[in-house]
Amino acid sequence: MKNSILAIAAMAVTSILFTGCERHHHGENGSLNVEFEHLWGMNQLPFSIGTQYVHPMTGDTMTFTTLKYYISNVELTKEDGTVQFVPNSYYLVDASNPLSALLSFDSIPSGHYTGISFLVGVDSTRNVSGAQTGALDPANDMFWSWNSGYVFIKAEGTSPQSTMPNAIFKFHIGGFQGVNSGLNRVSMSFGGGMAAVQEVASPVVHLAVNPAMLWCANGVCFPGLAQVSHLMMPNAATAQRAKAFSEGFSFEHLHN
């Protein structure tokens, strides 16, 4: 009995000593920032709302009035392979608002990070849990009122190829369950580099997003705007487009 107590006491002291060392070297938290840059097509033209583009594969001419999408459930990979989950990470990126495209993950343990992973969309739990706040506030106009769930990707604009009134196109892409789920996880490394998060340094990781991928991915194209200019609910077509859009994220560079 006495020996057991001594052993436990020794373990406790050892534990405190080791924890103390750990805290001394790595215990502080810092921030990591991720900036999404929207670049159109293979030639990576700077993308902006209100500018006319030609799709390099379908040949359609289009001008976006809206491009918004959710990024959530962020995970960061450390150099030792461990994964740091970013709690409560829900972001609505709006291509018309540069501030919304700069995501800041605060209170991240200091260390060297080699990659990132996130959902393009909103996890199923938050789709079935009633009124949400912040980025998920339904007043952000990214929630289907008649078929509960978040619109993960909203792309709207005009195109002479569209057969809709006023030549508009509207893609509201989402769906969190079943075979037509539009939820996709994107994972990528920082190209062999490391983001060094420290209390006094907040690295910035630049990721590229290619909105043209809504129409083509990996050499496979979906119907152009003359055929499909209107997708407004979860189905097989939106699931395909969601997957294609998620494949349009790529690592660009990082600043420490």
Binding site: N127, V128, S129, G130, A131, P138, A139, D141, F143, S145, W146, N147, S148, G149
Partner: peptide, 25 residues
């Protein structure tokens, strides 16, 4: 059965153009 939680139920009649016809904002 399109609505899965009572808290998001009021959104539907608010934004429906033949009911309240008003955005949440």
């Amino acid at each position: 059965g399109g609505i899965n939680h009572l808290e998001v139920m009021p959104i539907a009649p608010f934004v429906n153009e033949v009911e309240h016809n008003i955005s949440l904002k």
